[in-house]
Design a binder for these strands. Structure first.
Length: 219
DNA sequence: AACTCGGGGCA
DNA sequence: TGCCCAGAGTT
């Protein structure tokens, strides 16, 4: 099966953009440091869950120093209602330490620097650079990966890195950030992992799974 | 490449 | 009440 061309990819993305024209980062934050913490917290849990703890959290902790000074158990307690809180608390303390030691307590704008921080991987680094600093980037999370594969924008067997590279090749740079958010919204609310809304999907005929699902009478 | 980590949310 | 969701780190 041949890969979808640039033109076909952009046609599909235009349809998605029409469905979610207002798509943007859903993590509540008011500066790059808060965003970084929010994205680290959001690993393996939903943005909605993170948004429940961050208002109180950001009131209590504003600077890297605040996270360094607090006992680990207390920070764990403050984020207990979201998953993986132990490792996340440890990572936030480590990350804050690195920020102070190597970056004067500021969040670095360079993706390769961000990725060195504890708890920060490709996805987190891309979100922070693009949302906080306006650097064009495509962060590949499970939604982006699933949608890209179902629509044939990339190959089934592609790694996260390959998905990212393919998307960057097929999408003009000025649309990276918008498309990234629109793909996430499309995956989260429409092209869901288990129960995608194929019946009302404008892209069924393009999709590798859609028509099969409809024939099996799966909505 | 496969496995682990830990909760909330929803059927 | 048990299944589904969601990245980074480790081996």
């Amino acid at each position: 099966m041949s890969l979808k061309s640039k033109k076909q990819t952009m046609e599909a993305l235009d349809v998605i953009a029409e469905l979610f024209p207002e798509a943007e980062c859903e993590l509540v934050h008011s500066n790059p440091f808060e965003l970084l913490i929010a994205v680290v917290l959001s690993a393996q849990c939903t943005d909605a869950l993170v948004n429940k703890v961050t208002p109180q959290l950001f009131k209590k902790y504003q600077k890297p120093e605040d996270y360094i000074q607090v006992p680990l158990e207390e920070l764990e307690q403050d984020i207990r209602s979201i998953g993986l809180f132990r490792s996340k608390a440890k990572n936030i303390k480590k990350l804050s330490q690195s920020l102070l030691e190597s970056y004067n307590g500021e969040v670095p704008k360079d993706r390769d620097e961000l990725i060195k921080l504890a708890g920060v991987g490709r996805k987190t680094a891309n979100v922070v650079t693009s949302v906080a600093f306006g650097v064009p980037a495509i962060a590949v999370d499970t939604h982006v990966e699933r949608v890209s594969k179902r629509l044939g924008i990339c190959r089934w067997k592609d790694s996260v890195r390959e998905v990212e590279e393919t998307l960057m090749k097929k999408i003009p740079q000025e649309r990276w950030s918008d498309s990234h958010h629109q793909l996430i919204f499309f995956g989260r609310y429409h092209c869901k992992a288990q129960s995608p809304k194929c019946v009302q999907c404008p892209l069924v005929d393009v999709c590798r799974e859609g028509t099969k699902r409809l024939k099996r009478n799966v909505s």
